[in-house]
Design a protein around this nucleic acid. Sequence first.
RNA 1: GCCGGCGUAGCUCAGCUGGUAGAGCAGGGCACUCGUAAUGCCCAGGUCGGCGGUUCAAGUCCGCCCGCCGGCUCCA
Length: 639
Amino acid sequence: MVRVSLSTGEKGEFPSGVTVREVLEKLNPRILRDVLVAKIDGRLVDLSHKIEKDCVVEPVFFEDREGKETFWHSTAHVMAAAVKRLFPEAKVTIGPPIENGFYYDFDYHRSFTPEDLEKIEEEMKKLVEEDHPFERVEVSKEEAVKLFSDMGEDYKVELINEIPDHVVSLYKTDGFVDLCRGPHIPSTGRIGAFKLLSVAGAYWRGDESNKMLQRIYGVSFPTKKQLKEYLRFLEEAKKRDHRRLGKELKLFLIDEDVGPGLVIWLPRGAVVRKVIEDYWKKKHEEAGYQLVYTPHVGKGRLWEISGHLDFYRENMFPEMKIEEVSYFVKPMNCPFHIYVYTSELRSYRDLPFRLAELGTVYRYEKSGVLHGLMRVRGFTQDDAHIFCTPEQVEDEIKATVEFAISMLKDFGFNDFNIYVSTKPDKAIGSEDMWELATGSLVKAAEELGLEYEIEEGEGAFYGPKIDITINDAIGREWQCSTIQFDFNLPERFNLTYRDKDGKDKRPYMIHRALLGSLERFFGVLIEHYAGAFPVWISPVQVRVMNITDEQADYALEVADILKASGIRAEADVRNEKIGYKIREAEKEKIPYMVVVGNREKAEKTVSVRRKGRGQLGTMKLEELIAAVKNEIDNKITEV
RNA sequence: GCCGGCGUAGCUCAGCUGGUAGAGCAGGGCACUCGUAAUGCCCAGGUCGGCGGUUCAAGUCCGCCCGCCGGCUCCA
């Protein structure tokens, strides 16, 4: 007998070899309809798993992360089964769950078309209706190799040969057998709704030198309603797309005649940028940074010393020669900041030495990776470098992480994810340096009470880093801040400081960007707010509209007074109906719309409409100014 | 860069199997002087991404190039 208890509290005794499903039937039959898999001792198992010893069983549902993963993974199997039914020559490879759904890669002599996807969906529907169980079978590696090579599934054979265990597990769904660790949901009938979203090429094992496979993406849910909701989310994301809004709101322009990945900031967008820049500079000065400006190009020799020509050349715009001398456009600001550091003999008294610059850099990015403002070829980093002693590292890191978060909060982001990347296999710098640096990153996160994840081996070869990503209004994650140690450049440029003991020592160098780049950050802001910026950032804060020509002079006067109060205001005195003007202002997402008619003109008041809230009623001009100022000064981000 | 899709007026898009381009919005003009998301009428506007080719004839078919979109790889 085995004693089994559920994480929900129920307990019971069963004969050894009882399945998870049988246990649930006995102890908590109500959840049987929704439970997908179970967790025993931290391991996920099928409901058909046989229990041989005392344990606690934790039922897992779609609502759990692991439940979703299993659900999507199982759907990927169903899709593969459908593909094999329709295209028997297609070879299967891998089909994992991803953040929002799943994919499966196939090797097929041509790519799948949208029509193929429809057919595959139809076939999947049949498989779901037929409600096939996912059956687990364990076989020896030899047997598995024979089975899959007989079927001509070379990729599976390759995978099996890399598994260290002697026994591998297979899952059968109808006639389809797949090598798979599992577990799976009980049967295909559980997949209430699914949709295949797109086809794309993908390299076998993500390696450019390998064969390109056909990847099909999809999502699935237990109910149709959930699928509908997800599709609505995709629609919402589309509406917020910064490329679309950038055009609609006249914020920026990327034109093929100018060059792909090169951004032109239109006047409205430039206002937003100026607001960000002014704020950023003020905050940096307050935080003890010194602002500098550095050139856009530098001699080849400089990039040789820095090592960029060795390890970064493929991302740099090509060489140009001026009077026989080689120059490169800068892909990074660091070498220049180093020359600020070395412009004087530095003493330990000078440290920490913090330099900041909104430095515009150019990087050659492969054409296929460019994406609106998020991935461009010319961008302005909100860059800074901190030079400090080993003793100062911890405080500097902690202060920098705090600084990053306070800044992001001012822009209305309150939901963060923190990742600490540790030493990769190939790295420079001593073990001690890595330890001190990595330890300071972890400690900073811990002392600030932030949850973080360790990304093992994901650091750069020259040092560990901590990245901060933000979650936007509809839950999407964006990379912004990065704080990186650099053990490479101080060596290469032979940086030193004179310590108390009179000896010259090597400073630690920390490279960091808080917003990331102004371009990307702008893109994130646009998507987060769907173009309706908080008042302090909004290109136009107030638009004054008259009802008839009679109040045009008053509208202009009101706008002038607002402007004189430091508010970005403008008047719309065109001969149009008020409804039309309001509609335009709404579409332009202007936060404050002020209407003036004869009543307001006579009373010297204004009728105020706040975007997102509707009409606020009639008030004195001073009241309006106070309301707008309040939102600006306190950086109010919620309407 | 690689795989797939797309590229028609400033914008959003229509244009079946080849016969020589159309709508809405925006823009210009006129009338209307109007209370919180579209007043009406008129006008103008396109070497159909570029270059070649097939054809009596190409926006429609073929090739190459450029750009964009979705992925892969990479990343601020």
